[in-house]
């Protein structure tokens, strides 16, 4: 006899019993002890057919293959660049993947990306020991020149992007800023000083109010009001 003790979208904390019985499988963020399934981290329950999993509400960014991230160059080696990923581990941007142009062996690598530069890059590989490779070859992957980089909770990134990018396109449209959201929780904003600041504040607002339903409309209204005040 299997009994699911929680509802979809319930908030659970570690140690909460989710399921009693063997007919349901433990998914991400849960573990089985004896016949029961317990929560392993703070999050929202998702019952998906025969599995129960937890969508985390907090926690550091862990790099995953195919993520699009914003990284900062902190070292230049013979073979490429070392970049910070806003996680516990640095990543390697190899010479081959560093630019869409051909880079000659022995060229001055700081001409391409210097220490302190921010880049928008894709994660190509993550090993079990968390050695990370990133690439800048791909559509839209580029060095981020000017503007500002802000840090948000990486668990809130899907909310900042919105469904099919609705939230971020709204922001871009209303503020006229160029915005790139990295899945590691770094956001790059570039535009006129006033609008850059407005976009910054709005993203912080989205992060704080991520749980409120119908946020996109509310943010649209907020932006209109703010722009009217400034004008």
């Amino acid at each position: 006899m299997t009994e699911i003790k929680v509802k979809d979208k319930d908030i659970v904390v570690p140690g909460d019993k989710l399921v009693e019985g063997m007919d349901v499988l433990p998914g991400q963020g849960t573990y089985r002890e004896g016949e029961a399934i317990y929560a392993e981290r703070i999050g929202v329950v998702k019952v998906d057919g025969r599995t129960v999993k937890i969508i985390p509400l907090s926690g550091a960014y862990v790099p995953q293959r195919d993520d699009l991230i914003i990284a900062k160059v902190f070292n230049i080696t013979m073979n490429g660049w070392n970049v910070e990923t806003n996680s516990a581990y640095p990543a390697m941007l190899s010479l081959r993947d560093g630019s869409s142009d051909y880079i000659q062996r022995g060229a001055d690598l700081n001409k391409y990306h210097d220490i302190g530069d921010y880049i928008l890059c894709g994660v190509t590989n993550v090993t079990s020991q968390m050695l990370i490779d990133v690439t800048m070859k791909g559509p839209g992957l580029q060095k981020l020149v000017g503007g500002r980089v802000i840090r948000v909770d990486s668990n809130k990134v899907p909310r900042i992007i919105g469904k099919q990018g609705s939230m971020v396109s709204l922001l871009k449209e209303k503020t006229g800023c160029k915005i790139s959201v990295g899945q590691n929780g770094l956001v790059w904003i570039s535009g006129t000083p006033n609008m850059e600041l407005l976009a910054h504040n709005t993203i912080k607002k989205i992060e704080e109010e991520a749980h409120i339903p119908g946020l996109t409309e509310a943010i649209g209204k907020f932006l209109d009001e703010q722009i009217k005040v400034k004008a």
Partner: peptide, 11 residues
């Protein structure tokens, strides 16, 4: 530790 989003079996 739980607040930091780490995997903990219980508090």
């Amino acid at each position: 530790l739980a607040d930091a989003g780490l995997k903990v079996k219980d508090i």
